[in-house]
């Protein structure tokens, strides 16, 4: 007989141990190490020397850093707002018409399952100023051609459009899920009140969708603030510095200039921005809960 089977079977904690060891080694330790590097000067090939907050002090005085922060925030603002607005519109459309089935659903999920690198390759070919189909189509309807990724004035907006193309259907499917789970009585009640469809949307649907939209916003914020692949693949931060976001700046400082300490300080700052945005949204979630 097994004695004290309660004790033998008491805990399954050990089953989490391998994952924990892996997480500490591959995620926890590197984060700690990155923080340490950000407080160090790392001569090429040499060992890190602790220099306190010097890298961060340098950061605050570096116009390139402020430029990168500005670009990161404006890319974020453009992408997120376009995706939320278009995603809500599409999500409600899908919810009303119960259309997210079969081929429609295949088309909806395909963009955000593509490797970002493919989106970049697509942009190179489709948005090529001379030979791309985009400018040819614009010419057919009498519009002037765009320089897209080759113009410092339009490059960031073009990236926002690319990310919006890729991720709006994801936001829409989340919104659709939220919409379809709303209680039907609410809509019947406002219908009887004779509310116009805009009133219904603004005063009923949108507030009820608040928590759903916050969830979508959190998921997209984390990705957009770290947006890297498509930029690195196409412009590598150019023309000039016009698309050098924090992530690109950090990567280039680290892996092209081998300035490990300074690059780590930028990456830690970017991580703080990401965590900050998630924190703000979790406060917001409490505010819009119903």
């Amino acid at each position: 007989m097994r004695t004290s089977s309660k004790n033998v079977l008491a805990g399954y904690h050990w089953m989490a141990a391998p994952a924990m060891v892996f997480t500490i080694g591959m995620i926890g330790f590197p984060i700690g190490y990155a923080i340490w590097l950000s407080l160090s000067n790392v001569p090429p090939g040499g060992d890190p020397v602790f220099i306190g907050l010097e890298n961060y002090a340098r950061l605050v005085k570096d116009p390139e850093f402020w430029n990168a922060l500005k670009l990161t925030v404006s890319l974020y603002a453009m992408s997120l707002s376009m995706q939320l607005v278009l995603g809500t519109w599409l999500g409600l459309l899908l919810g009303r018409s119960r259309a997210a089935q079969g081929l429609t659903r295949v088309i909806l999920v395909s963009p955000f399952m593509l490797p970002p690198v493919v989106v970049g390759m697509m942009a190179i070919v489709i948005l090529d100023p001379s030979f791309g189909i985009a400018n040819w189509l614009l010419a057919q309807i009498g519009l002037p051609p765009g320089l897209w990724l080759s113009d410092p004035k339009t490059v960031l907006f073009t990236f926002a459009v690319l990310d919006t193309w890729q991720w709006t259907p994801f936001v829409a499917l989340i919104v659709m899920g939220g919409y379809l789970s709303l209680p039907a009585e609410v809509f019947e009640a406002v219908e009887l009140d004779g509310a116009t469809s805009f009133q219904r949307f603004w005063h009923v649907t949108l507030p009820l969708l608040g928590p759903t939209l916050v969830t979508a916003a959190v998921l997209r914020s984390v990705d957009i603030l770290r947006f890297f692949d498509v930029i690195y693949l196409t412009t590598q931060g150019g023309p000039g510095n016009s698309s050098t976001t924090l992530n690109i700046l950090a990567y280039r400082r680290g892996f092209e200039f081998f300035d490990f300490g300074y690059a780590s300080a930028i990456m830690i700052t970017l991580s703080a921005v990401v965590f900050g945005s998630v924190l703000i949204f979790s406060k917001l979630r409490a505010a819009v809960a119903w």
């Binding site: 995620i27 590197p30 990155a34 770290r226 991580s271 990401v274």
Partner: peptide, 17 residues
């Protein structure tokens, strides 16, 4: 902890790795 891994930029891990 795993949420950290989902939120931190991949480039953060790259130098230590």
């Amino acid at each position: 902890i795993t949420l950290f891994a989902r939120m931190a930029p991949g480039t953060l891990f790259l130098l230590p790795w």
